[in-house]
Nucleic acid binder design. Structure first.
Lengths: 198, 198
DNA sequence: CTGTTTCTGTTGCCTAACCAACAAATCAGA
DNA sequence: TCTGATTTGTTGGTTAGGCAACAGAAACAG
């Protein structure tokens, strides 16, 4: 997972394949592109594609994941942080931004793959929240809490992206209150979670 | 020489090395750059550099040659053309342009390599002129004529680039007259070489 | 001058990428 | 439905690139 690939050839190949994928995504969308197309565009042998990715779906997932991680990085969100209002707010903002841009930039015919994207996002959010929870003392069932909170954030983001009736700040405020009240009874040293939106 | 390299890996490697060379040429000049620098910048192993080029001088020569050939292509100059006024004029223009841009773009400390550049240019011009001469009937000593004419063009271009006292058109007119009169007695079907500059 | 450092060019071994060829699956049209 | 054309995965053998290690040649500081 975190194994930094050292060999320059591997770096080059994957970079070129991803680049080709992005180009073709804009030009013809995910459905219309074939593995052959991607390989041709990248000037990489088709066989080599399979050395790196199971199929075009795997590459697709990988790209989504990297884009989401980039969005998280934009908000300076890391695994090794604490469970506090500021971090939660940033996480919520990142999710909202990403969902919005996915809904906008998605080729019409490729909507069928939204579930895959959503699974990846949710899982990623859950990982982060779970990591943050190690900063909380005496919490029981951290895994359950992480799961439910991550789904809450994800769901709120999805809902918000549909119409943007409220501001992102309101979404964050509401969620943070919900989480705070929900955890109050469970955690001894729960930090002050309320952080008014800027 | 003209063997089109088919393997994508070879194409990639050379492209990256050339790209790195150009960047470093602008940043620190030819003298200051090492083979290690070029390889690092291109993210290519230094050993691999030596699989493609004798040393950094060989790469340098190759780049010069390609730049000059690009300039020739800009003027739609090809080997398989005829010995006529229009082609000669374009060739002279291309030489003038290239010499000017070399003198301008050359890093101060790298002037010592001008001779190498000049040799390459002259040889290339000579090849072209010699090829064109096959379109002339009954010419004796085509090789001698090609050599002298190519040197004349090269020399005029060098001279012109120093101060640009005359227009390129004047240089071309003068040279074409010189060549025409020089060849008049040698060739039976010498085409009308005079083509006034545009 | 001398020891140190950097750069060079070369070697042998290993790994990644290329490529042709194949069978199975999918798709398109008659 | 059948048929031909694509696309897909997979294989084995070949070639290019990565890498560590070396010795010799500059370059350079003390």
């Amino acid at each position: 997972m975190s194994t930094q690939t050292l060999d320059p050839r591997v770096r080059r190949t994957r970079k070129l394949l991803k680049q080709a994928f992005v180009e073709l995504m804009h030009e013809k969308g995910f459905n219309a592109m074939t593995v052959q197309d991607i390989a041709d565009r990248a000037d990489i042998n088709r066989t080599t594609f399979y050395d790196h990715y199971e199929d075009k779906f795997a590459l697709h997932d990988q790209m989504i994941l990297e884009w989401f991680q980039q969005k998280l990085a934009d908000y300076t969100i890391t695994q090794d942080a604490t469970f506090c209002g500021d971090n939660l707010r940033n996480l919520i903002y990142a999710v909202c931004d990403f969902v919005l841009q996915m809904n906008g930039g998605c080729h019409g015919a490729d909507l069928q793959y939204k579930p895959a994207i959503e699974d990846l996002m949710q899982a990623t959010i859950q990982d982060i929240v779970h990591s943050w929870m190690t900063s909380l003392d005496g919490i029981e069932h951290a895994d359950i809490h992480a799961a439910s909170i991550s789904y809450a954030i994800f769901g709120a983001g999805m809902q918000w992206s549909k119409d943007q009736t409220h501001s992102k700040g309101t979404v964050a405020d509401t969620l943070i209150s919900l989480i705070r009240d929900g955890l109050k009874a469970q955690v001894t040293n729960l930090p002050e979670l309320v952080t008014q939106s800027a």
